[in-house]
């Protein structure tokens, strides 16, 4: 019974623990500014983790999310740069967002195609996608950090909706929608099933290729969304802005209690996982602990969290 509680709510318990730690060792940690930043950063990582979670449900993997996010931020900056003189600002923003999300969908579609039709293992397919996204990101602006020409866009990153930062509010809304899809629609059942027993799903007449394509494209779109908010918040598009985020996303998913073998899990755990990672990061900055040590903390927490959640299967 105790073990059941740990497994189901473990992530939230760890989150509470980490927050308590912050309260203890960081004086004045919980001021509105800090909380706001944590929520924004958690939302950005949370979008990537959401896409990653869906992919992992189907027993897949997406290593391209970090670079897709960076690519998205670059596309937004570039679109603004090239269009802001010729086109009204509102339209520029719309075009920029569409291009960024579209590119994310494209890379995601490419990943999905490689996995479903070319039967390439997801690990490798998404590494390819990762490199391609990276290349595109660098190519567009020659690797130069570029400020957003339409500064009003920054409000998307820094503004608030009923005191909740917009990125976070958006994430929550999207997650609620997907929660409904996962629990209350046939597609949701099919997603879990594809990861749980691909043969049984095939035998039941379900088109697993379609399910996986949708998932990988969604992962690309979510990663691009994360990049969008990142650009809005920092006010810059830079090809390395989300470097390494794919590993953090996977870490968030695993800390969130989702099994890497797929077939089961909740999407809320990874959000908590993302928040845990960001809070830890802030604690380290706050106490001026060597930033390099942050990876140590994250690494250790990762190992512990996974150990707690991997007890399930036998041989």
């Amino acid at each position: 019974m105790g073990l059941y509680v740990l497994r189901r709510f473990g992530t939230f318990i760890i989150l509470a623990g980490v927050l308590a730690l912050a309260r203890l060792i960081c004086f004045g940690f919980f001021n509105p500014f800090n909380i706001s930043i944590i929520l924004i950063m958690s939302a950005i990582l949370g979008f990537l983790a959401l896409g990653e979670t869906l992919v992992i449900f189907t027993r897949g993997f997406d290593l391209s999310v970090g670079n897709v996010a960076s690519m998205s931020s670059v596309i937004i900056a570039a679109s603004m740069l090239y269009l802001h003189k010729a086109v009204p600002p509102g339209l520029v923003i719309i075009v920029a967002v569409l291009l960024a999300l579209g590119a994310g969908a494209l890379i995601g579609g490419m990943n999905g195609f490689a996995v479903t039709y070319m039967k390439i293992p997801p690990f490798i397919a998404t590494i390819g996608g990762m490199w391609i996204a990276y290349g595109i990101a660098f190519f567009i602006l020659r690797g130069v950090p570029t400020g957003l020409k339409i500064t009003s866009f920054k409000i998307v990153g820094r503004g608030q909706l009923f005191y909740v930062p917009i990125p976070f509010a958006t994430l929550v809304v999207v997650m609620i929608i997907f929660y409904i899809i996962l629990r209350k629609t046939p597609l949701g059942v099919h997603i879990y099933a594809t990861g749980g027993n691909p043969y049984a799903v095939h035998l039941s007449g379900i088109n697993t290729k379609r399910v996986k394509m949708i998932i990988y494209m969604l992962s690309g779109i979510f990663a691009a969304t994360g990049g969008l908010f990142l650009a809005a918040w920092t006010g810059t598009g830079f090809p390395r802005s989300a470097e390494g985020y794919e590993l953090l996303a996977i870490a968030a998913v695993v800390i969130g209690g989702v099994s890497l073998f797929g077939g089961a899990g909740s999407i809320w755990g990874p959000l908590a996982g993302a928040t845990i990672l960001q809070v830890l990061d802030k604690i380290i900055v706050y106490r001026a602990i060597s930033p390099f040590l942050s990876q140590m903390f994250i690494g250790s927490i990762l190992l512990v969290a996974i150990y707690l959640t991997t007890r399930r299967k036998g041989i």
Partner: peptide
Amino acid sequence: NPFIQDVVMGVVLL
């Protein structure tokens, strides 16, 4: 272009 190199490597590997 060094940045395209990564793209090429990705494509080659795939």
